[in-house]
Simulated scan of single mutants.
Amino acid sequence: MAPLKVIGAGLDRTGTDGLSVALDILGYKTHHMRHLYFGQGDPDLFKKAYEQPENPIDWNAVYQDFDAAIGTPSVIFLERLMKQYPEAKIILTVRDPDAWYESVKSTIYQMTHQPAKASTPKHILQIREMAHAIVLDGSFGKPAEFLNAQAMKEKFLQHNAWVRKHVPADKLLVMELGKDSQWDKLCAFLGQPIPEVSYPKTNSKQELLQRVKARDFDKKNSL
């Protein structure tokens, strides 16, 4: 189905899951981390693409069943995807950096660092390894680095600043978590009619904390 028509530029825990569901409602087929948890796709491919940037990647094959891509792992390759799909529209989801860091630290960071069960599927372990290697320039795999809150918040702000600087204004939509009229802005940007359903609110911090508490690393997990 590639080429990609929409690419998410927001880091995880900025409303990326809700955006991916919203795009599906609008008729897109959106790639999100959940597809890797469902066993669709190879997390090692993304890990290798990050660790070996000199090697060419057939992005059309990676996204063959999709025309939109949101969140990790796609956001890690934003610059490369923008070059591959220059006509794609870019959506940057943002939030307060303090709230973002606390959300990441208490949810997906914990999920990728808890001891695995003996029954944990191989592809879930591969996803963890990928996250440790590529998220926030590998900071997920370096606890001492990730737990430097100020440094991580600086990475977050620098990422958002890069997007605003390098994406042409006519191709960029910035959506702030919890503050925007989401459907109005999104549909106007994409030229789509506003659906007769509420904008999706998914994957809340409370939901993820329940999964962390239960050590629930099965197909229900997504970032």
Rank of each mutant, 00 (worst) to 15 (best):
A133C: 09
I124M: 15
S106D: 10
L23D: 12
A9Q: 00
P3T: 12
R13Y: 04
Y50L: 06
A99G: 13
R80A: 12
V6P: 02
P121K: 05
D180F: 05
H166K: 10
F66S: 07
P121I: 09
G8R: 01
K48G: 11
I194R: 09
G27M: 08
E102C: 13
I57N: 03
L11P: 02
V212A: 07
T112P: 01
C187Y: 03
M111V: 06
E207Q: 15
H159L: 02
P56I: 04
A9L: 01
K47C: 12
K213R: 15
P121C: 11
S139M: 11
Q64S: 14
A88V: 02
P200Q: 12
E87P: 01
S119C: 07
L147I: 03
D216F: 00
K117N: 12
I108C: 05
L125C: 12
V21G: 07
K83E: 13
K142G: 10
P43D: 13
D218L: 11
E207F: 15
A22P: 05
C187T: 05
S204D: 13
L190V: 04
E176M: 07
K122W: 14
R13L: 04
K201E: 13
L173R: 00
K201D: 07
A214P: 06
A169W: 06
D218W: 04
N55S: 14
K117E: 12
G71D: 09
A188I: 07
S139E: 11
Y109C: 01
D180E: 09
N60A: 00
K48T: 14
M1A: 11
S222F: 10
Q192W: 08
N160Y: 00
K105H: 02
A49V: 06
F140R: 00
D180Y: 01
K205H: 08
K219W: 09
S103W: 03
Y28E: 07
A188D: 11
Q84R: 01
V212R: 01
K47G: 09
P86I: 04
I91G: 03
Q110G: 01
M82T: 03
C187D: 06
I25S: 06
G15L: 11
K185E: 01
K89W: 03
K220D: 14
A188T: 11
F217D: 13
F66W: 12
I127R: 05
Y50D: 05
D42H: 05
Q110M: 06
W162S: 04
Q182H: 08
K185D: 03
V197L: 08
T112N: 10
A188Q: 08
K142E: 10
Y199P: 08
E145L: 14
D96G: 03
S119F: 08
F77A: 02
Y101L: 14
A88C: 03
R211D: 15
Q182P: 00
E196G: 15
E79G: 04
E102L: 15
Q40S: 11
N55Y: 13
A133T: 09
P97H: 07
A2F: 05
N55L: 15
F77S: 02
S198N: 14
E176Q: 14
A69W: 01
P53N: 04
P143A: 10
Q192G: 08
E196D: 15
A49L: 07
K185L: 10
W162I: 00
N203F: 05
N221G: 10
Q210K: 12
L36A: 10
K201W: 04
F66R: 08
Q40H: 14
K179H: 12
K201G: 12
D216C: 02
K83Y: 03
Y50H: 03
L26P: 04
P73N: 02
H35G: 07
F189T: 08
